[in-house]
């Protein structure tokens, strides 16, 4: 597919040309980096690790929703790094709640705003990490989605409980080594596949469900805008990197997220009123080995296991992209 870009033709990309274009201009939504809000509602000085992908997810979500936003946040990496008492990185009203009830508190905030007649002016966002969404906060999320509150839930997925020292969560992919699924003579790491939470949320009949990746910021930005504009509950699952937890160099944080999409490990799609569509189709399919071999958590995998992972990706790829 030909992609129109504003960058002069003499620019040679050091990685793959198309990869950087995803940031420069989103071909699908016809957006440009210059359309992204300049306002920084997430302050610097937060204690996130160098190269943290999740912080970029927070920052872009706030840019998209604007300052008329009330956010709730389950315990997790982004809560810990952004609110070392008595400091806060947030420039919007923000509530830290327990691990399990980000969606429940956001429901309450939304109901209160409705009672005060202010809901039309204020956006409500519930944030949660993958542990606080997929495992611990799941019942609150399910309840909020089922009750039909007008809120947006954003789950930043770094694929384990990174803040407490890399314990496996329901969102940890097959084969990944964590401290609670270590590699050894009888174990090859996490032996269960990743829970497909966006599909579970979509099964609630939620009007807007999307997956996104920090490596595709304009796609993510547009999806947050659409989720907020949607009346009723909406859900975004954003793939975010964790350099210490994944065992990757900090500068490759975004590059490896992009590889996840290019290999088919992560698929960008949105489901609007039950109708799904792929928002980004990789031009060439990279072998999954490229994504696995650069990360310490997957380094132990033998050829046989990699072939097994590749097979499951191929199956999904043919279902999604080849019709």
């Amino acid at each position: 597919m030909k992609v129109a870009v504003d960058v002069p033709s003499y620019v040679k990309c050091r990685q793959s040309c198309r990869a950087s274009m995803s940031a420069v201009r989103c071909w699908r939504f016809k957006r440009n980096v210059k359309d992204v809000s300049e306002e920084e509602l997430f302050a610097p000085g937060h204690r996130g690790c160098a190269g943290c992908g999740c912080t970029v997810a927070m920052r872009l979500a706030l840019k998209a929703s604007g300052k008329n936003t009330i956010a709730t946040h389950a315990t997790g990496c982004m809560e810990v790094v952004s609110s070392p008492y008595p400091e806060t990185a947030w420039r919007i009203p923000w509530i830290h709640v327990a691990f399990e009830n980000s969606a429940a508190v956001a429901s309450g905030v939304e109901a209160a705003l409705k009672a005060l007649g202010k809901k039309d002016k204020v956006n409500v966002i519930a944030f949660g990490g993958d542990g606080g969404t997929v495992d611990i906060g799941f019942q609150a999320l399910s309840g909020a989605m089922e009750r039909g509150h007008d809120l947006t839930y954003i789950c930043y997925d770094n694929e384990a409980y990174m803040n407490t020292g890399v314990q496996r969560s329901g969102s940890t992919p097959f084969g990944a080594a964590t401290t609670t699924s270590p590699v050894g003579a009888v174990s090859l790491g996490n032996d269960r596949p990743k829970k497909d939470l966006p599909a579970i949320v979509a099964a609630h009949g939620v009007g807007y469900v999307a997956t996104a990746s920090v490596a595709f910021p304009l796609d993510y930005y547009e999806k947050v805008k659409r989720a907020i504009a949607h009346k009723g509950p909406s859900y975004i699952h954003v793939h975010s990197s964790c350099p210490p937890g994944w065992g990757i160099p900090s500068e490759k944080s975004i590059e490896i997220l992009r590889l996840a999409v290019d290999t088919g490990m992560w698929v960008l799609y949105e489901i609007v009123d039950g109708k799904g569509r792929i928002t980004y189709k990789p031009a060439t399919k990279h072998p999954v080995e490229e994504y696995l071999k650069v990360q310490k958590r997957f380094r132990h995998l033998d050829d046989e296991t990699i072939a097994k992972i590749q097979e499951s990706i191929d199956k999904r790829w043919s279902e999604l992209f080849e019709d």
């Binding site: 620019v11 940031a23 997430f42 610097p44 996130g48 943290c52």
Partner: peptide, 13 residues
Amino acid sequence: VDCGCCWIFCPDM
């Protein structure tokens, strides 16, 4: 070339 890649991906603003 003023593409904004560095700006949009910076985790520390």
